[in-house]
């Protein structure tokens, strides 16, 4: 894909973020039927159909340049959104290699990587970066390797060390998170980190997910979708900045919900890293307003039904309590009660 980038859109202040018709049709709707219940739903991260968000290991779309700029804004104000414990250095290089190799292979018009032994040459055309460096030598890059490469990638990245039969969150770049904090969670184990999800513990999903991840194999990445909702196309809904976005929720009405309320979908990918034996967890965020979503009639009907019947514990956990009813009311005219076809395809 050679994306045309929406160079000037914003995720704050005037919120000029928009999806093109093409971006809407490739939106990764997380609902394959008219109701939703939490599940781990992990599947192999295999290439999806051409043009889909899973066609490649890392999806680069029309929001790439604007998202990288948004990340830089967040980091300038809050440098601790990037952190790595000292023993995570080999995993940092693993991540840099994974991302550079994938982008150069999958988007040759935008990125290129040339290697001569450990001497690497990286070109990122959309961001106008041209960098010679020595793989493995931190002094040859302007920043730590994970910091460097994730400033050039969409989505958050969390790196987990594997030891003592558990996974420890010990490095990451987190500027577009849905209400959790790297600063708070650094050093936590897998279950501590996922602690607050309601119902999931009873379902035993974390025990199974942890066991599965401890055995995640090199060369066989996996993925899953998760979702929530956000008011405005705001990427940075961190706990640290709650005062800036928490009050947005009270402004939603049945009249303005179509423009204010956004479905926020995370495409989460997990890769085993070769040198460090760590795991990188990529959390790529997609935002679509209800009005954009409603341009696809099947999706409007489905999302209306999912929201209307959502389990109360999940409504609370996902922070939808204050505006769920307004969103349902806004979507209601699009739902004539006719059935939806199975699966998530637009028709």
């Amino acid at each position: 894909m050679s994306a045309v980038f929406n160079l000037h859109e914003t995720f704050r202040d005037d919120f000029s973020y928009r999806n093109s018709a093409r971006a809407i049709r490739r939106f990764p709707l997380p609902f394959s039927e008219d109701s939703y219940m939490y599940s781990v739903n992990i599947e192999p991260h295999l290439p999806g159909p051409p043009g889909s968000v899973t066609e490649f290991a890392f999806d680069v779309d029309e929001h790439y340049v604007a998202e990288c700029r948004e990340r830089a804004i967040v980091l300038a104000a809050e440098p601790l959104r990037y952190q790595a414990l000292p023993h995570m250095m080999s995993s940092q290089w693993d991540c840099l290699e994974l991302i550079m190799e994938s982008l150069a292979r999958d988007y040759p018009t935008h990125f290129s990587l040339a290697k001569q032994g450990n001497r690497w040459h990286w070109i990122n055309r959309p961001l106008q970066i041209d960098q010679h460096f020595t793989f493995g030598d931190t002094a040859t890059l302007p920043r730590q390797p994970l910091d460097y490469i994730t400033r050039q990638a969409q989505g958050d990245f969390v790196v987990m060390d594997q030891r003592e039969g558990d996974l420890w969150t010990e490095a990451g770049m987190v500027t577009t998170q849905a209400d959790w904090s790297l600063d708070f969670d650094l050093g936590m184990t897998f279950k501590e980190w996922h602690g607050p999800v309601p119902l999931a513990h009873e379902l035993g999903v974390f025990d199974r997910a942890l066991k599965f991840l401890l055995n995640l194999r090199l060369g066989q990445p996996v993925r899953r979708l998760n979702w929530t909702m956000t008011i405005h196309p705001r990427l940075d809904t961190s706990p640290e900045n709650y005062p800036q976005w928490g009050t947005d929720r009270a402004t939603v009405t049945a009249q303005n919900a179509g423009d204010l309320v956004h479905l926020r979908v995370e495409l989460q990918g997990l890769w085993r890293l070769p040198r460090s034996n760590a795991i990188v967890f990529g959390i790529r965020c997609y935002l679509v307003s209800l009005r954009e979503l409603a341009t696809v009639p099947k999706w409007a009907r489905r999302v209306h039904r999912v929201l209307k019947d959502l389990h109360p514990a999940l409504v609370d956990y996902k922070g939808l309590t204050r505006y769920r009813d307004a969103a349902v009311e806004w979507l209601a005219p699009f739902d004539d009660g006719s059935p939806t076809t199975p699966g998530t395809a637009p028709e």
Binding site: H87, M88, R163, E164, R217, L218, G219, P274, S276, N277
Partner: peptide, 12 residues
């Protein structure tokens, strides 16, 4: 098959 590590060094 691709390598698997069940006997890795503890990094800390």
């Amino acid at each position: 098959a691709h390598p698997v590590n069940l006997f890795g060094l503890d990094k800390i």
